[in-house]
């Protein structure tokens, strides 16, 4: 990237080089690795609030696996865990 000596190096984004997220270190959505597979998780605990919170959005709906990168096997486990946590009043059904 060229930048003149007098100006601050401004990034010019074209449609191709436009960043997909605020965090450029993340791979693009749809190509993210499963965080549970990385850990080798065999099951997801419904009592584990910090973990479940990461995979729910502001309205406490489960985030799409396209964005989180969770594989289908773990997404199904996550769904069961979130439903159980909601029943017990750990997570809200809807904010």
């Amino acid at each position: 990237m060229k930048s003149s000596p007098n100006s601050f190096p401004m990034k010019i984004f074209t449609s191709k080089s436009m960043p997909h997220t605020a965090d450029p270190s993340l791979p693009p959505p749809g190509k993210r690795p499963c965080p549970f597979c990385k850990q080798g998780a065999m099951w997801i605990d419904h009592k584990d609030y910090p973990t479940l919170k990461k995979f729910t959005n502001y309205f406490s709906a489960i985030k799409k696996r396209y964005y989180t990168g969770v594989c289908l096997r773990h997404q199904k486990m996550l769904k069961t865990a979130v439903e159980r946590a909601r029943f017990m009043g750990i997570i809200a059904y809807r904010k």
Binding site: M42, W43, H46, D48, P50, F87, G89
Partner: peptide, 27 residues
């Protein structure tokens, strides 16, 4: 008020609330 009785899954590990909270703080 509410109860949940479930069969534990394979490779289940019992983690206490205090341990989990400590791990969360560390993270």
């Amino acid at each position: 008020l509410r109860h949940l009785l479930i069969k534990i899954p394979k490779h289940y590990e019992f983690v206490t609330f205090v341990d989990r909270a400590a791990a969360w703080e560390k993270e």
